[in-house]
Nucleic acid binder design. Structure first.
Lengths: 230, 230
DNA sequence: CCAAAAGTGTTATAACTACACCCATGT
DNA sequence: ACATGGGTGTAGTTATAACACTTTTGG
């Protein structure tokens, strides 16, 4: 690639792809939703027995994003509603052998995330999880930071919701990600003014006054990430 | 890395590191500064003769950021005032052989960028440059987008200026990057209110009223990039 | 004195925040 | 009827933008 500094033959550096997958979990008891992620228990050295991010080696005729999707399918069994490259980690000592990890982060809708039933896969709270293998603790922290950051200036929150949702649902997503309460009135005006939602005529009646259901406007993109492939 | 999907042995994928280096050029004739970047002319296939981003293979005991710095030193001969990972490019068909490129972007101060005199290296306007090798056109577009984006919410503009500078100098940097004029009065108030500049007692007298010289306040960081190494 | 950039002041507009208040429904 | 979340109104604050104006230098 580019101007090649002279090496008789490039050394053996392996390329892996991992993905931080976020979803939302709203348990019967809790009144707030939590951000959760699936982890995989390692069945071999190094770090045998420890939890780690789902991932695998990059195939030699496989695109990196495709590898991330494959990873995601193998663990959750479903397609992500949002997928974006997070960062490339390549410190010399981050693994016993030299591995460069291209890390992606993804969003999966709550209803879909329930489908997971693989062996050695479990969902954890994204903020309070066991100590992970390799530098994955660090990676998860960074992914969470990016998620919180991005939710402030783009529309990715919809990636965690089903087709139809109320404004309270959407607000709950923001609150779970940002970790603080938002004013319902101001929240409503903000999203209504942004032309990203299409109001439907349907309502959903919980225990009180029924709320209008909205649909996401796919004309505006989930997130602007500049001039990048798709 | 992580949960390893079974491959008898990972295939031969090579890892390269490239850097998009930005600097500012203020030529005698022009009244505005331009964003410029150094390119390297390829001396071998593929794309022999075409201009490309400076870069090289990642050494097997070399960190990725170190590789980017090395690249930068080999072309400009100097250390960057700012260096950040841009993106990892790994499409299967972006090169005749499978190469994953970890791309960084960097800022170099104008006075330092004059020192370049390597063979096969030349500086080009960042917006109007010849068609580059590989997918480097695409990469440069993305790097420029990130630069313009980041200048809006962080202090990286100082990475293009010497130790002492006037507010007009700083404003010129912003104008060159954003491609539009800024109101001097409002610009002054914004940066003065942000506590990132330390006023000195020195002045610089051009052809008219002397302007106060400022120094960058290193207590606040150049840019917040979240919980990432250094 | 004049041109031009340095630097200050003023005002209009938009965005954000807090919070009071009314509405519609299940119980 | 009443508790509760859905939904609207409004006023204070803050950030931004436009632009008039004063100051200080070199020529």
């Amino acid at each position: 690639m580019s101007t090649l500094t002279e090496h008789p033959h490039p050394e053996q550096i392996r390329v892996a792809v991992s993905t931080v997958i976020f979803s939302l979990r709203r348990d019967p008891g809790d009144d707030r939703a939590r951000v959760v992620m699936p982890l995989v228990r390692r069945t071999r050295d190094p770090f045998e027995g420890r939890w780690a991010l789902p991932g695998g080696w990059l195939g030699d005729v496989e695109g990196m994003e495709a590898a991330a999707s494959r990873t995601l399918a193998e663990t959750t069994g479903l397609a992500p509603s949002y997928l974006e490259q997070l960062y490339a980690f390549g410190d010399v000592d981050r693994s016993p052998t030299r591995v460069v990890s291209i890390v992606y982060w993804a969003l999966v809708r709550e209803d879909e995330s329930r489908a997971t039933a693989q062996e050695n896969v479990a969902w954890f709270d994204a903020t309070t999880h066991p100590e992970l293998a390799f530098d994955h603790d660090h990676i998860v922290r960074y992914a969470l930071w990016r998620l919180r950051n991005k939710v402030g200036y783009s529309r990715i929150a919809h990636g965690l919701l089903p087709d139809l949702f109320t404004l309270a649902d959407l607000r709950e997503v923001y609150e779970a990600i940002l970790g603080r309460r938002l004013d319902p009135a101001n929240f409503r005006r903000q999203v209504e003014g942004s032309a990203t939602l299409i109001p439907t005529d349907e309502r959903r009646g919980g225990s009180h006054r029924p709320a209008r259901l909205y649909r996401y406007n796919h004309d505006v993109e989930l997130a602007e990430r500049g001039p990048l492939p798709d």
